[in-house]
Structures are given as C-alpha cells and as structure tokens.
Design a protein around this nucleic acid. Structure first.
Lengths: 245, 245
DNA sequence: GCGGTTCCTTGATGTAGATCAAGTCGAAGA
DNA sequence: TCTTCGACTTGATCTACATCAAGGAACCGC
C-alpha cells in the first residue's frame, strides 16, 4: 500500500466564508444528532464560530499527529477516518456520512489527531474550532451534557466494531454490516464507500470481501449489482450475522 | 468455552455498609484519575451516594444485558470486562485495576450493560448508583467536564486496542503490551491477570501467547519466570512493537 | 475512438495463528 | 501424603484468511 499522490500534495481546503453560506452552517449543526437538543441561543453560539470548508474527493482533511483543528461535522459527502501502521497497512476506523461528526474526542480531550481524515467524495464540512468550542463547553452545561451522551454512543459503536472484529469471522462481519445497512433502507443497500474501504473497516482485504459477497449471492441471501445490494432473505442474513449461519 | 459454575451461581455481593467503611470510599474516589480535580463539596456529594461492595475472586459483578447499576470504581483487586459471543468465544475488553472505573459509559449513556463484569481477584469496588450519579452530573458542571475528559482518554485507549488488533501481528501486540507494562515499573513486569485473560485481551489464544513469550525469551529480549517478566532489551522490544521487528 | 488508471473479481498458493492433544507443574483439599 | 484440578506449555495439525497474480469493466483525458 502506498500513498496516493493526492495525499502527498495536501491541497489547502477551499474555505467558504460564513458571509456567503451562513444559513447552511446552522442547518447542518441543527440536523446533527450530536447537537440535537441544543436550543436557540446555544445553537447560535455554535453557528457563530462555525467555518464551512469544502474538500474535493481524495483530499486530506488532517493527518495523524496534527494538532486537532476542532470538531468537524459533515454536511455533504463522505470522510474516511483511518490509521496507518508503520508498515503501510491501513485500517478504516470510521466512514463519516452527512450529519455525523469526527475529531470530537481529540478536540475535547486536548490531544493531537490520532488518525488521518480524508474526504473521499466532494465534501462540505463544518468546523467548530477547538478553542471557541471548548469555551462554549466550559460555559454551557446543557451543551456539555449533550455532547457527553453523544460520546457514549460513539464509544458503544467503537466497542461494537471491536467485538465484530474479535468475535466474528469474515462472513459474520459482512452479514452484520449488510443487516445494519439494510435496516434503514428496507432491504436495498447502497454501499456508502468503495468496497476496499468497506473491507478495511471490517479488517478484511477487498478480495475476501468480494468472495464473501459472492458466496452470499450464490446462496440466495442477497442479490448483488455492483454498488447496490438487495437483501433477499433477511432472516437468513441475521442468522449468519449472529453466528448460527 | 463453557460457563464456570461460579458464573452460574451469581452469589450476591457482600455489601459493606457505609457505616463501617465510610472513610475508604472517599479515598477511593479521590484517588481515581477520572475524578481527579473534583473538589471538596462535589467530592462529598459523590461520597454520600457511594456504596462499597466486595466480590470474591470469580464472582460476577454484572452481566451483559443487565440494567446498568451505576459507575464502578475499583478500590482493590481486579475486574475483568468481557463480551461473550453466541458461539461461546469471549473477548476481554478491559482489565480494570484499582483506581480505574467501569460501566461509566452505560450509566451515562443510559443503556444496558454491553458486556460482562467479573471480579477475578478478591475485590472491593465503589458503586455510584446511576440515578444519584446522573443527578450530580446534571447539577454540577465541573463534574461533567471532568468526566468528559476522562471519557476521551477511554475512547483513545479503545481506539488504541482496536488498532493493535487490526494493524499488528501477534508478536507486535505482545511486545507493545510488555513495553507499556514495563514502562511504569522499570523493566520488571508483573502480569496483572492470568495469561489466558491477557491473551484474550490481545485477541490471541493462550497457546499463541505462550509461544510468543517463549520466542521473546529465546531471542534474549525478555526473561520469563512464571507471572513475572523482566525486560532485558527495551530497545529491541520497542522495535518489535513498532513493527520493525 | 484509444491508451491509461483504478476498482473489482477470480483463481492459485502461502502462512499466521487456531485448534487439538498430550504433558508438566503447583495449589488446594482430603 | 496423595489426589484433583486448573493454568500453562509444547508439539502436530488444520484452516481462514492474506497474498500474489492475472484478467475484466468502468472511467478518464486526449
């Protein structure tokens, strides 16, 4: 695995100043689950510090070891959070879709970015810079409580991922992922990212993911058409995910 | 892997009422890193709700799926947090030593225990029950901020574990663990728990851990005497942990 | 249109670590 | 003292997955 040229160039983000897109920022924050429950004045405080940024597909947002710029909220597109091992192997920790946040933990905990963030689609993100954000956190108790419960959910999903990887085999992990993705969209799954990134998230190679999906197709549990999958037998899929498969 | 009889019996904890051990509770809370910075009145508030409990080695503290009793602080002993897969495989998420906490996330997030907790040495723990604890959190901003930074550290260590497991091989994981443990104790490592539990934490079988330790001994990097290990070549150990091995 | 990428698939082969199966050792209990 | 039991070690074997290698398909820019 090697660095892509895009990754070496590190193009600076194209920053859309508040003046031209103010309305968007407040919408994005308001729609973000982490900030659900944040009311009028607090919401406006957050909005006032918000910076809208745009990243073309393939450009990095920050790198492992950078000082943490603040809390990011994805408005459009997709951001990939991943860690690089010294040997070049990489692991996708999180695929951040619109409405979700990233780098909250580093911002609040006051440490440097523990992983890389790369935009993998043309993306628009809202940045709440560390310093004003931390000030807000120190002055507004409500906000603090809100963020805390949000963080609990994040921990839970992390533990879930850890358990997937340690307790399930490849087939189980894929089945669980498909089950989760299909739940909201009534059986039809649009893979959110390239298969190689999905594979890395599950700690698999893309080859193994490919083979696993084929086996699921062959046994009639799913139907596969490129990036679009259809769950044919949800019961069976669940059984496989639980490990009874 | 089967349930141990101890696990099925679920003996009730021997509860030491505040009257007889009040002084201990406040010390335990005060010494706990998660609550460092909590000052006089808040500390006393926590103390007033604290319940001291004692668990013999081998007894469960709670199980996966139980309603979360509250935040636990280990005063003495050792508690193992682990998850069971339907097929019986288990993974040790955390070995909680004195001064550390567990179940904070479930208590604050308001969901059920996502894993099992079992005392694996004669242990004394302090329980801060969910309801009064959450009340305290809602009324005391300082406490809230404090806990939040504590949670950030926990997330970081979780991500660290995840990356260990996904990016390192068995040798790398073991070397990293030994390096971390040796750091504080100047080269001499007392394994905190049984080797099979340490192995599970690293997502290895005890056989593989055993073989890996032997290989490290044979190459002169460590010296092994049962539960006690001595790091002979810290440089080399670090190199192996980083993957330059 | 036509090379050049990059992603994905599929097959052949390799291997780290799991599993299975004996043993050793030390602690607890009769 | 002898017996039992569980933790740990060690060796032999197995296997799920990675790795390597070779196309195919979609998507560029020219």
């Amino acid at each position: 695995m090697s660095f892509s040229p895009l990754f070496i160039l590190h193009p600076s983000a194209f920053i859309l100043y508040a003046s031209c897109m103010q309305t968007a920022a407040i919408d994005v924050i308001g729609r973000c689950p982490l900030f659900r429950g944040v009311k009028g004045p607090h919401l406006q405080l957050l909005e006032s510090m918000a910076k809208l940024q745009k990243f073309d597909a393939g450009t990095p947002v920050f790198r492992q070891g950078d000082e943490c710029p603040g809390v990011y909220i994805v408005a459009e597109g997709l951001v990939r959070i991943f860690k690089l091992a010294p040997n070049g192997k990489e692991h996708v920790l999180h695929l951040v879709s619109p409405g979700q946040t990233f780098a909250e933990v580093a911002a609040i905990g006051g440490f440097n970015c523990p992983a890389n963030a790369q935009s993998i689609a043309d993306s628009v993100v809202v940045l709440l810079p560390t310093e004003p954000f931390m000030n807000a956190l120190h002055t507004h108790h409500e906000l603090c409580l809100q963020i805390m419960t949000g963080m609990c959910l994040w921990v839970r999903s992390l533990v879930g991922l850890l358990e997937d990887i340690t307790l399930r085999d490849a087939m189980g992990r894929v089945a669980k992922l498909l089950g989760d993705l299909a739940q909201s969209s009534h059986g039809v799954v649009q893979l959110p990212a390239m298969k190689k990134h999905m594979a890395s998230h599950l700690n698999l190679t893309s080859e193994t993911l490919s083979r696993t999906l084929r086996r699921l197709s062959e046994s009639g549990v799913i139907e596969s058409d490129n990036q679009t999958l259809r769950v044919l037998d949800a019961e069976q899929l669940k059984a496989i995910a639980v490990g009874v498969g």
